[in-house]
């Protein structure tokens, strides 16, 4: 009985929307222009109009579906996806999630206002329609927040990846010779990331030698020095040669006090010396041109 009442109310609401589609679209488009158009420059006039028409079409399709309350129906999913895409588009262009939520609340208000203009609707129908609209728009706002969080996560992940990339600038300075200047503080996590990037780069470039420059490293602890030795071992295991350069006196002292065995590691005082050593091992001669 209650189900039938709800369905009847949905049909009536769909009819009402169809009758007032012109005024509804106009109001929603106008608000869209205020929030996203003009100087805000988030959506063009055509885009706002298209979005508005699509929204009303999807809402009518949902109201005319077998069960408009079924949040697993294709019509409901289509409406959810519509708001998901709209929010992604607006957020990517620098829009704020608050504005989008206000816009959705305006849509809801406009529809409720439309109910008030229709005299044929009974109090009972109006109550059912209000409940339906309230539940529907809550779900849509949730979809917008979900899209917002996904977009934020994606941005944070991209920024982290960029930071990792810039923090480990592995450069092929010569055919088969890679340099890796490490700057800042080395912790276990960063050392592991550097190691992973370095080993993949060796495989990709088929590098014969790697010069790891520690001139910019200010602190090192037991765990990190252990990881550093592991990195050198892994490079050697791949068949490449690892040369560590630019060990500061305080780092050298720390390594010795930590009982780190450097006997299997080739070290040179500076990056320049390290490169010379790599070239020497590869049989490359770099010198001044004879006059």
């Amino acid at each position: 009985m209650a189900q039938q009442k709800a369905t009847d109310a949905s049909v009536k609401l769909a009819e009402l929307l169809k009758l007032q589609v012109g005024s509804l679209a106009e109001a929603i488009e106008k608000e869209g222009q205020n929030i996203f158009g003009g100087s805000n420059n988030l959506l063009g006039t055509d885009e706002i109009n298209d979005f508005c028409i699509e929204f009303l079409e999807l809402l009518v399709a949902l109201l005319q579906s077998k069960d408009p309350h079924d949040d697993a129906s294709p019509q409901f999913h289509a409406l959810e996806m519509y708001f998901n895409n709209l929010s992604k588009q607006i957020l990517v262009r620098g829009g704020r999630v608050e504005d989008l939520v206000r816009y959705i609340q305006f849509m809801q208000r406009t529809l409720i206002d439309a109910l008030g203009n229709e005299k044929r609707i009974t109090v009972d129908d109006a109550r059912t329609m209000l409940l339906f609209l309230s539940g529907l728009f809550n779900e849509l706002i949730l979809a917008v927040f979900q899209a917002y969080l996904e977009e934020k996560e994606r941005t944070v992940y991209a920024q982290e990846a960029e930071l990792r990339e810039t923090a480990t600038p592995i450069t092929e300075i010569w055919d088969g010779v890679l340099t890796l200047p490490i700057i800042g503080t080395l912790d276990s996590n960063r050392t592991m990331l550097v190691m992973e990037a370095l080993l993949n780069r060796i495989a990709k470039e088929h590098a014969s030698a790697v010069v790891i420059d520690l001139t910019g490293v200010k602190n090192i602890d037991s765990q990190v020095s252990h990881h550093l030795i592991q990195m050198v071992q892994a490079v050697q295991l791949m068949g490449s040669d690892a040369i560590i350069t630019g060990i500061r006196p305080e780092i050298a002292r720390a390594l010795i006090s930590l009982n780190i065995d450097l006997s299997n590691v080739t070290t040179r005082a500076s990056l320049s010396d390290g490169l010379k050593e790599a070239f020497r091992r590869m049989g490359i001669l770099v010198g001044k041109k004879a006059d």
Binding site: Q233, A234, L237
Partner: peptide
């Protein structure tokens, strides 16, 4: 030797 193998072995 693959990077993953070198990584694991060095551990």
């Amino acid at each position: 030797m693959q990077p993953t193998a070198a990584f694991a072995l060095s551990k």
